[in-house]
Nucleic acid binder design. Structure first.
Lengths: 270, 270
DNA sequence: CAAGTTAGTTTATGTCGTAAGGAGTTGCAA
DNA sequence: TTGCAACTCCTTACGACATAAACTAACTTG
């Protein structure tokens, strides 16, 4: 897993991403029954439905009524396919946010949309962000937040880091919940059942828990781990609250940076 | 990849994690030449050196002069081994932070240690945080931050979410850089070379970049993407700055939450 | 129709996790 | 001392995976 972009021919890879292929001339040989787009869409369907682990060339081919090897006519390798899927999926993100209500509302809406998006496509979180794919839609997504965040008036250097940090947070938060969604189906255990069984085992295995972890025990006693809405799965509810609260904290921090910046400092810590 | 904990026998799994196995009685059969600890340590060596993708039962066995199947005497499956590796590695994190200098200094030090830790063990970031492993060292790590963050005086419910969000951020930030470290070796390309080649291709493939992404272009023009310290690899430098700045912003946000909380509100948005 | 190009299949290679069965060791009861 | 049960570790085997290589069949152009 976590494959790096551009292992093969970087030029071909970028051309595929940005769809700058030459027009479909008339060529000898059998008419192509597939296309890059068809394969990428099929790949996304497989990954959405069965998870990244189930994304195999065979599975994608099968979904299109072909063998695995048929795909290699259109796509150089599996890792390129994943890159293409990654960028293609990003296209479904909204790109316009109303800036009239202020940057904070826009950024919050953006973060929530991205979060929901990741929950719809959990496999996205398993594509390594180390060396970015550099596809068009990744840039569109970046440009979208940047437009909203420019309303903060922060200097370019600070802005760059803030965007990065915000992205990390959203990604990290989504990751915690993303696979949780599939877990109940795969393990045949609801979150509650799982948690209940686990905490029973915990007591069995660490009877001195309260002594070893006093602060955690205190938090537990304060009811910090009880959720209010019983209709939403436990772990999902918890993750949702953590996301909302964390985002608010982060945006508060941006406001602090703004006032510090407005007070004459150019950047950096106090 | 990204395997869920406790697929097999949850009780055995927890017993292995918390090392509550019965004492080594005298038993018939050949004396065991291996042990769970030996295997876990070997697994961590393999993963550290070659990455999670190269972590195979065969590879771990080989490092111990055994076959892959020999491991199954000690460890029920690969996914259990990964869980054990995960918790075992966490043991090397510091657990004591000086709280005299205030919660902020302690939390910053903690976050930096965790970040460095993840860079030392990038494979940790590929273990799904969805359904936590629930090993002893994971709890120790949590208790450690909690001890520092309790200095904020925030109520338990808020604290829980803040800790979660902070963890997400550190994880996300580490993830961006973690595999970047291996990338140059694997692709035979330094960060600069890679970036240079890529940006040339970008211009080739999207000559209208400035029109399509004006805010990004503005940021680039402001020199936001130029690093000061030339001795550190480009992408690593960038990630490091993003981490430090993002952490500061988040902690600023916590201070805001504190003052809001101290002013009489119990929780929630303004 | 012949030649050349392309789409897609079949087959094969070398990986992986792990099930099944067997070989060799050891402690203990008879 | 002998036999047996419990144990470690190995060999072999299976079905999955990505993908290389060789092939078949469809199509355009001459």
């Amino acid at each position: 897993m976590t494959v790096f972009a551009g292992q093969g021919d970087a030029r071909r890879s970028m051309a595929l991403l940005w769809r700058t292929a030459d027009p479909p001339q008339v060529r000898p040989g059998p008419r192509p029954a597939l296309s890059v787009d068809l394969i990428v869409t099929a790949g996304i369907s497989v990954a959405d439905a069965e998870g990244m682990a189930a994304l195999s060339m065979r599975a994608v081919g099968e979904r299109l009524g072909r063998t695995a090897m048929a795909l290699y006519t259109y796509v150089p390798s599996k890792s390129e396919l994943v890159d293409l899927m990654y960028d293609h999926a990003l296209a479904e993100l909204p790109t316009d946010y109303d800036l009239a209500a202020g940057w904070r509302a826009a950024v919050t809406a953006w973060a929530e949309d991205v979060w929901e998006f990741y929950l719809r496509h959990p496999w996205m979180l398993q594509v390594s962000p180390a060396r970015p794919v550099l596809g068009p839609n990744e840039y569109v997504m970046l440009e979208t937040v940047l437009r909203a965040l420019r309303g903060t008036g922060l200097p370019a250097g600070v802005l760059r880091r803030v965007v990065g940090a915000l992205t990390h947070f959203v990604r990290g938060a989504a990751q915690t919940i993303a696979e949780t969604r599939r877990a109940p189906a795969e393990t045949g255990m609801s979150d509650e059942e799982w948690w209940y069984a686990r905490s029973a085992l915990l007591q069995e295995v660490a009877p001195d828990f309260a002594d070893r972890f006093p602060v955690m025990t205190w938090m537990d006693g304060e009811g910090a781990y009880r959720s209010e809405d019983e209709t939403v799965p436990y772990l999902e509810q918890e993750a949702r609250e953590t996301f909302a609260a964390g985002l608010a904290v982060f945006l508060d921090g941006i406001e602090t940076a703004m006032s510090r910046n407005g007070a004459g400092r150019t950047s950096g810590r106090p």
